[in-house]
């Protein structure tokens, strides 16, 4: 079932029978198994599933970082073409990502400035005067509550996980892509920074009107932020629809289980079921 509220908006990213098989012969492992999806402009979609269900694999295919074994992905309604580097570069103007682990997302040998400068260059700002570039970087940093003057010439490992992930958002702020793929961007950082980062993401979405594909194993979080939810089990989408439909009215047994696993604060924990 689709989320009716978005069905009139233009398609941003969609897929038919998208499949990924790792290895071959009797070692073949189908990580993503014939999934269909339709993400609309401005929609915030969550893909929810347990560890190993194939979320990251799907997101890498969406990003064009992994080849698709079978099926097709459509970008803005047309079959996606990333057959050469020029086309890939074009595609990546439109889709960007924030990864799970901020500590491994940065090249530890490059200064922070490099990351941000790359974004400006990618948006065609290569020949802008230096002051203009600094101004843009400062603006991007202040959007995520960081001070560029304090960060310049620093290396990523001199930052905290939360600061790094905020810097990743600053990167998106500079790139202004159509689609943002956020693969569990908050799972490695503390609860306090988590809320800040989610807020910033939502704020950024409102500002530049992008589609966010939010990957998480936390169905409660998905309910809280998303318009639509896709539930993934063993590489297949078992259920999809608007967040309210799926979570308040789950049909698949897997969804029900995911929901029942969310600890409720107002109920005392039953420790016997944990672990």
């Amino acid at each position: 079932m689709k989320n009716e509220a978005f069905k009139d908006r233009p398609l941003c990213l969609s897929g038919k029978g998208v499949t990924k098989v790792f290895g071959y012969g009797n070692k073949a492992n189908t990580a993503v198994d014939h999934v269909d999806f339709e993400f609309h402009e401005g929609e915030l979609v969550s893909i929810v599933g347990e560890s190993g269900s194939g979320k990251t694999t799907l997101s890498k295919m969406l990003l064009g970082l992994l080849s698709v074994t079978e099926g097709e992905i459509f970008f803005q309604g047309k079959p996606r073409d990333i057959s050469n580097r020029k086309k890939k570069k074009e595609y990546w103007q439109g889709i960007q990502a924030i990864f799970q682990d901020p500590f491994s997302s940065f090249n530890v040998f490059n200064k922070i400035d490099t990351v941000l400068l790359d974004c400006i260059n990618m948006r065609g700002g290569k020949h802008l005067p230096k002051e203009k570039k600094i101004e843009m970087m400062t603006e991007a940093c202040s959007f995520v509550n960081l001070k560029f003057a304090e960060l310049t010439n620093k290396y990523p490992f001199e930052l905290s996980g939360g600061q790094m992930q905020r810097l990743m958002i600053a990167r998106i702020f500079l790139l202004k892509p159509k689609i943002l793929l956020a693969d569990e961007p908050t799972s490695m950082i503390d609860a306090c920074s988590r809320a800040t980062i989610l807020d910033m993401l939502l704020q950024l979405r409102d500002e530049i009107g992008m589609t966010i594909i939010f990957i998480t194993h936390d169905i409660g979080l998905a309910y809280y932020i998303s318009d639509s939810v896709y539930i993934m089990e063993h590489g297949k989408f078992v259920e999809s629809g608007s967040a309210d439909d799926v979570i308040l009215n789950p049909k698949a047994a897997y969804t029900k289980r995911l929901i029942s696993d969310v600890p409720k604060i107002h109920e005392p924990w039953d420790l016997s079921t944990v672990g």
Partner: peptide, 26 residues
């Protein structure tokens, strides 16, 4: 398959540059 390499790809860097700056130093 590390994320910093993926991020470098997403930033449109060439194969040569990725090997020289994101793989070789490591």
């Amino acid at each position: 398959n590390r994320d910093h390499v993926n991020l470098s790809k997403l930033s449109g860097h060439s194969l040569f540059r990725i090997i020289m700056t994101d793989i070789l130093p490591y």
